[in-house]
Structures are given as structure tokens and as C-alpha cells.
Amino acid sequence: MDQVDPTAPPSGTGCADCEATGAWWLHLRRCAACGHVGCCDSSPNQHATAHARGSGHRIVQSFEPGEDWFWDYGAEEFAEGPELAAPHAHPAGQPVPGPAGRVPADWMRHLH
């Protein structure tokens, strides 16, 4: 899989783009090519998909505790992949949605 670099560490514990703009997310996805952590398509900003489109990196893995599935944005289907560099998920104590202190009280109204 030329779209996967198992040595690339995740870019952080939250969505890199939401962190940069002060936004919030529901669930996190990790780019299997470069480690960029972005928010899922249910999140208001859908940064994981935006990263895939902008970079051409089509494979992501869930960055949620207890989940290890891969998704291929190009084929629009689940995919197989190797174990990626640790950590494999955001910290278990990190709230969902997150991060703490930035999620609006009416957060469910903002989901896609």
C-alpha cells in the first residue's frame, strides 16, 4: 500500500485543523500516509475528508480508543492496513466530543 506509512506518528491528540482554529470535533481519523489527525464527517468541519482531498492521501484509520478500522476515501470502502506508529488513539480521558471547554451546549445540532 503506497498510501500507508506505518512509521508516521500522529500529528497530535486532536484534530490538527480544529486545534489551529479553536474549533471542536466529534470523532477523529488519522491519515495513514502522513499521520495528520482530522475530524470525522459527522463533525462540523470534516477536516479528515478535506485533508484526503487536498493531499491525495486516501487512507485513514480511526483514532478513537478501541477502534482499529481503516477507510479508503478513494474507493469509499473499508480497507486493510498495517499497525501504525503509536499512539493508536487519542487519550482515553479526552472527551467525545472534544476538546473539553470548546464544545457548545447544543453540539448535536451542529453534526452532519
Rank of each mutant, 00 (worst) to 15 (best):
G66P: 05
E76K: 10
H51S: 07
R109A: 15
E76S: 06
P65M: 03
C18K: 06
V96I: 15
P91D: 12
C18V: 08
D68L: 07
T7C: 06
H110N: 02
C31D: 09
R29A: 04
N45I: 04
V37T: 08
L26P: 00
H36Y: 12
M1L: 11
P104T: 11
P87I: 11
A52R: 02
R30L: 10
Q3V: 03
V96S: 15
A52E: 04
E19F: 03
A86G: 05
H36C: 12
C31K: 11
H51E: 07
D17E: 13
G35I: 03
V96T: 15
P10N: 12
G54N: 10
V96A: 13
A100Y: 01
R30F: 02
C18R: 08
A20I: 00
R58H: 14
P65K: 01
C18L: 04
G93Q: 03
F70V: 07
H88T: 13
N45E: 14
Q46D: 13
A85Y: 03
E76L: 01
S42K: 11
Q61I: 12
W69H: 12
A89T: 11
I59H: 05
E83T: 15
G12T: 13
A16K: 13
S43C: 13
T7W: 02
V60H: 14
H57L: 13
L28A: 10
R29N: 09
F78K: 15
D106P: 12
A92M: 04
A32R: 03
Q3D: 10
H57T: 14
A16Y: 00
P6G: 09
A86W: 00
A92G: 03
N45H: 12
G12C: 11
M1Q: 11
E64M: 14
S62W: 01
C18H: 04
G54L: 05
H47D: 09
V37S: 11
E77K: 11
C34S: 08
W69C: 06
P104E: 08
Q61R: 15
R53Q: 13
A105S: 12
C40G: 11
P99N: 09
A100I: 02
A75Y: 00
E67S: 05
W69Y: 09
G14E: 14
W24N: 11
P104S: 10
A86V: 06
P104D: 07
D5E: 12
H51D: 06
Q94H: 14
G54T: 07
W25N: 05
R102Q: 05
Y73T: 13
V37M: 09
A75W: 00
A8T: 04
F78M: 14
W69S: 04
P99L: 03
A33W: 00
H27P: 01
T21N: 15
A33P: 03
V37G: 08
E76F: 00
E19G: 01
E19V: 08
A105W: 00
P91W: 06
A32N: 02
C39M: 01
V96Y: 05
H47L: 08
V96D: 08
E83N: 08
A50P: 00
E76H: 03
E67V: 05
D2A: 13
P44I: 09
E77P: 00
V4D: 06
I59A: 06
H110P: 05
R58Q: 13
H57R: 14
R58V: 13
R53H: 06
W25L: 01
W71F: 15
A85P: 05
P65L: 02
A20M: 00
V103D: 03
A100D: 07
T49R: 09
H47P: 02
Y73W: 15
G66W: 02
P87A: 08
H57A: 14
C31Q: 10
